[in-house]
Design a protein around this nucleic acid. Structure first.
Lengths: 340, 340
DNA sequence: TTGAAAGCGATACCAC
DNA sequence: GTGGTATCGCTTTCAA
């Protein structure tokens, strides 16, 4: 181990060759289990490699193979509520394959987006995943015609691309069915802005499941709207709901707070169900919120495996893939397994 | 533009040389503004480069320069509340310098940590930033003795390293001083677990500013604890506070909800101030929460510039750098500029 | 079974 | 001014 190393402090295949008394090419074959060679030599080289801590330079390797084992993740979800689970899934799926992820937060700035895309391409990423906070809006960058495969996750994709999204309709149906299953009969859907595609999908599914004249209240994605919606409903003097399906967990939170302030008991008098399973919020709601989970981590995982497949040249059917949501039962609906 | 290109679909410096009718070395010099050459030639080459969309391969470049223009970001903050702003700051600071960021979420798994660190080193990152959710805990990986500079941000660092953190004491003093400034005299601090260093720092600063016998209530970082703390205080029958400094925004949220439920008016009767400026929560609190912002984005920016400096061989004083917090005034304290 | 040599894409030195 | 050539660290024929 007294041999001198490169000034970089990193040990190269040359160092290893010198140390093992064989040539560079032999070392390469030994480590990659290529070619034919004495099993003993191979073992010895591997042992010495481990001893002196040799790790092949991925840059050099990438130069040859034109695979960098790197992908880029583009997002405009600064807050990260949606992006983070997606990201976690991607990372988890790819780390086993030795693929690293460049994170590029581009806000809604096209110029910034271009800078990041160019930087990623310069760095020879094997593929790009675009993700966002809305499935009916695309990122402010044009990713068509890039020399690498692009997969869209939770953001609108180019026509002939692969896009993953949560199945809003199925999730909403799940929520509504659950309210009915636990015995609720007068249902309301309090949700976000009508121009969101996911709002429309969820509302339609709700209507289908709850019956066409169950009211749908559109508003914004905030607690305050949930609060106000309850105020409106209770002061309108109509038939009061006993089951409320909210468009997201924040609205649900507002709804539950408003109900409590009115002395309406949740879940005894009214069941409330949210959407998103934003845990930090859902768990702190009183009572903890039953809600729909979009399985974003799984979505990320699938997106990750998909870019990987495309990068390796495996073919994939283009199109929109809707991944199923799941129900997370906490206490805001009551009824879970009990004879209510 | 009819000349054939490499099968990769990416145009290389050779293509560009052929296209411009000059040698590869001339092209290189032209694009990098190196060497002496006819201004006209340089301009022509640049123009053609832009036309055929030439972008230098960063892998090849990195091989030579032993600079990959890539850094690694290691985090165990899965939820991302702290990591995200830090990350945004890092990215923002580095994108101008052409540096990309590998995101490595390692949970609290040492094995996963090692995998990611190895992968980053293989990819020749120029430096690593370690970030977490607690400044008094270190990540489950040993980053000492790495061949690249390491900077710690919002997580405990190795002894001789550069570590950035928020100035908890200053932030707490700021909060407490604000309560006093707007005329509050009976102060309480409701905060998180006593074994967090930041809890200790904030509590000491609070005591210093509020007077030694102002009570400090330790609990957990949740709304429910804030809620319960108020219940305890109001049922204990002691002197009731008119100013409450909470250890984080979630606790503050619980406190405010509990106060409202008791008919105590915020901010008329009691001022409440939080910590973290977790906007999505602080803005939805009723009334919106006045709180302390740790300037995490700025912290990230500084950390980014620091690794960059270290990577370029510029020296830096090791040690802990506490960055100042700032006060964000909303409505939960009242008093802002008014003659209360 | 092993090693020499070419080459991946770019840069830098040194001739011309 | 411009172009050949060595080089970065590694993989991959092809000879020996």
């Amino acid at each position: 181990m007294t041999t001198q190393r490169a000034r970089s402090g990193r040990v190269t295949i040359h160092d290893l060759a010198r140390e093992s008394g064989v040539s560079v090419s032999t070392v390469s074959k030994a480590l990659n289990d290529n070619g034919r060679m004495a099993a003993e030599t191979r073992a010895r080289i591997k042992r010495i490699a481990a001893e002196i801590g040799f790790r092949p330079n991925a840059l050099a390797r990438g130069l040859l193979s034109s695979r960098s084992f790197t992908i880029g993740l583009l997002t405009n979800d600064t807050y990260g509520r949606f992006t983070l689970p997606v990201m976690a899934g991607i990372s988890e799926a790819l780390v086993d394959h030795g693929v690293s992820v460049f994170l590029c937060a581009i806000e809604d700035d096209p110029a910034l987006g271009k800078v990041h895309v160019d930087a990623m391409l310069d760095k020879q990423v094997d593929g790009i995943i675009a993700t966002g906070k809305r499935i009916d809006r695309s990122l402010p960058v044009d990713l068509a015609g890039l020399p690498v495969p692009v997969v869209y996750a939770f953001t609108a994709g180019a026509p002939e691309s692969v896009t993953f999204t949560a199945d809003d309709a199925q999730g909403a149906a799940l929520a509504t069915a659950w309210l009915k299953k636990i015995g609720r009969r007068s249902l309301v859907h309090i949700t976000g802005p009508e121009d969101f595609v996911s709002v429309g999908e969820r509302a339609s599914a709700f209507a289908r499941e709850a019956g066409g004249n169950a009211p749908v209240l559109y508003g914004i994605w905030s607690e305050s709207w949930g609060h106000r919606a309850i105020a409106d409903l209770w002061s309108a003097g109509g038939r009061l709901p006993d089951g409320i399906f909210c468009g997201n967990d924040q609205i649900a939170r507002g709804v539950i707070d408003a109900l409590r302030e009115r002395g309406v008991r949740v879940p005894d008098d009214v069941s409330v169900i949210g959407f998103d399973n934003w845990e930090i919020l859902a768990e702190q709601t009183r009572p903890p919120l039953t809600t729909i989970d979009m399985n974003l981590k799984e979505l990320g995982r699938e997106a990750g495996l998909m870019v990987l497949a495309l990068a390796e040249g495996r073919p994939a059917e283009p199109g929109l893939r809707k991944l199923p949501c799941k129900l997370v039962v906490r206490q805001s609906c009551g009824g879970a397994g009990t004879a209510e």
